[in-house]
Each structure stands twice: as C-alpha cells, then as structure tokens.
C-alpha cells in the first residue's frame, strides 16, 4: 500500500477507541485508483477548511496528499462513491452553498469486494442558505469507508444531514460541524441498520461559535448478529455562543446477544446561558408491546418489524424531502424482511 501503516489511527487514540481501523485494513492488498472525477487537483490547498479541525487524524491529510478525485458542487446533485475490488480511493467533495440558496445533495456510498475509501467532504454554507445532505452507506463485507465531513454554517443558515448505514463492512462516519454565525442550525440524523460482523462508527463534533445557534442529533441504531455500533457525539459550546440550544439523542436496539453498541456523549460548555441535553439508551425490544401485538394475531416477525420501524421513525422525521424519506422507509422495510 502507498501509505505508512503508522499513520492509521490506532485504538490507543481517544476517538478511535471503539473502532479498530488498523485491524480492518490489515492484510488488504489495495492499489491506488480513481473514480474519474474531473476537478482540478492542484486547486486543493493543504490548509483547506477542516484540516485544522481534523488535526488529530492523519487520514484527512492522507486524503489531501493522495486524492485524484475532486468534485466541486454548488447545486442539487446525486453522487455515487462506488469502489471496485482492490481499490484504494481518496475522493474529495467540495460543496459550496451560496447565500440564500436551498440545495439537496444525495451521496450513495457503496462498493464491491475489498477496498478502502478514505473520503473527505468539505462544506461551506453561506448566510441564510439551506443544505439538505442525504447519504446512504452500503459497503461490501470487506469494504472500508472512512468518511470525514467538515461543515461551516454561516449566520441564519441551516445544515440538515441524514445518513442511512446499511450493508456491511467497516464504516467510520465522522462529522465536524462549526456554527459560525448567529442563529445557524445544524441538524444531524441517522439510522444504522447493522448486521453480520459489520462495524459502523458515527463520530460527531459540533462547535457552537456564535449565539442563538441550534443543533440537533437524532440517531437510531438497530444491531443484530455480531454487529458493532459506535456513537460518539460531542457538543462544544464556546463562550460567545450564548442562547445555544443543543440536543443529542442516540438510541440503540440490540436484537442479538452478540451485537454490541458503544455510546459516548460529551458536552463541553463554556457559555452560561445555554440549553443543552443528551439522551442515550441501549436496550432490547420490549416484551410487553410484542406480546400485545401477537395477542392480536400479528405474527412475531411482523410485530417486531413494526416495532423496529417505530423505533427508527424519529430519525426519519428529520428528513425534509418526502421522496427521500419514503425511500428510506422502504430500505428499512427491506432490511427487516431479510434480517430481523
């Protein structure tokens, strides 16, 4: 491989404690490849926004030095980040949402065989703009996806992200959001449907750096077989960010005794007039509703599916686009029919 293994974060590093990327990448024989995006690579500055915030992981810089695929986006788009067997990819998306605009971008992450995608997504949302950012991540059994997003949200602007993790493989989905201007909003939501020996890690940092900002995290994870889920969410409210309203929720539903969920919420608050809270739960499907439904003649698998759909509903409510929301509902139903 064309990178030094020492540069891969180890479980000794604080924010990689639950996600053993070194193990996931070990023994993979990969060749650097490209998707064929046509952005001019020489335009990429090593000091691009996010480099500093991701100073604690070498993978950001690795992407910068390796990338052969750059895409600049300023309007509605659907983007596929698909790897082929044996590929090592370092794609970079640079998304600019102009003041007052309202755009929606859908990213589909998937692949075949053995691969590693070390992707960076750089987002800048100007004043009073709205950006709806939808992602589906559906990797192969031996696929590795490390995905780093950095987003700056200006005054009155709104970032609404939803991510659905399905499939298999190893996923690290890390988001670092900066609320830069007054009254900006950052809404992050996701549903993780994890099976087999899949590993999916959602790691979030939201920095409130201006007053009257709001942030919301709503994550639902359903785990079966020997799947491993990780949720680390950190809300950092700077001293200037008075009247911040931050809420974080991570609920996990464990369907198999061998599945595991690690959750680490963190609040770091330096302003005195803020409203911040978090809630994290990990549990099994409740016996009482299950029995109640079965006593009404609903077969157990159908009852379980209804309860799991209900469990995920709150995250789906964060999706503004009805068509995409419906697609996600169908994905959940499909997953439930095949697994739960």
């Amino acid at each position: 491989m064309s990178f030094a293994f020492e540069n891969i974060p180890s479980v000794k590093s604080e924010r990689w404690k639950y996600s053993n990327l070194q193990r996931a990448l070990k023994d993979l024989s990969l060749t650097p490849a490209r998707l064929g995006w046509d952005g001019n690579v020489s335009l990429l500055s090593p000091h691009a926004p996010g480099a500093m915030e991701y100073g604690d992981t070498q993978l950001w810089d690795l992407n910068a030095s390796q990338t052969k695929d750059i895409k600049f986006i300023t309007s509605n788009d659907i983007i596929d980040v698909s790897a082929k067997d044996g590929q090592s990819l370092s794609p970079r998306l640079i998304i600019d949402v102009k003041a007052g605009e309202n755009i929606t971008i859908i990213e589909n992450h998937n692949g075949d065989g053995v691969y590693w995608k070390n992707a960076v997504v750089q987002i800048n949302i100007e004043e009073n703009a709205i950006f709806n950012h939808y992602r589906t991540i559906e990797e192969s059994e031996k696929g590795v996806n490390t995905l780093f997003t950095h987003v700056k949200i200006a005054k009155g602007a709104s970032y609404n992200a939803f991510t659905m993790v399905l499939g298999d493989g190893f996923v690290r989905n890390q988001i670092h959001a900066e609320i830069m201007g007054e009254g900006a909003h950052c809404g992050l939501a996701g549903v993780n449907l994890l099976a087999s020996t899949q590993h999916a890690d959602t790691t979030i940092t939201i920095e409130h750096q201006a007053p009257h900002g709001t942030s919301n995290q709503t994550y639902k994870s359903v785990l079966t077989d020997k799947a491993h889920g990780v949720f680390q969410g950190k809300v950092h409210v700077h001293k200037v960010a008075q009247k911040t309203d931050g809420y974080q929720l991570s609920n996990a539903l464990i369907l198999s005794p061998q599945a595991e969920m690690d959750t680490k919420p963190e609040l770091e608050i330096y302003a005195d007039d803020v409203k911040c809270s978090h809630g994290a739960t990990t549990g099994k499907l409740d016996d009482d509703p299950l029995f109640y439904m079965r006593a009404r003649g609903i077969p157990e698998p159908v009852a379980r599916a209804l309860l799991i759909e209900a469990f995920c509903a709150q995250a789906l409510e964060c999706i503004a686009d009805d068509v995409f929301a419906q697609t996600m509902r169908e994905e959940i139903a499909k997953w439930l029919t095949s697994r739960a």
Binding site: D288, Y292, M293, I298, L306, L307, A310
Partner: peptide, 16 residues
Amino acid sequence: PVEIPGVQMTTFMKTA
C-alpha cells in the same frame, strides 16, 4: 392495555 409509541392505531389494527 399496552402503549406502543410510533405505531399508529390504524396500521396496527389493519395488520392485526
């Protein structure tokens, strides 16, 4: 009777 948050009465009833 058991409360089932997130499952609408109509859906529940029709399924049953």
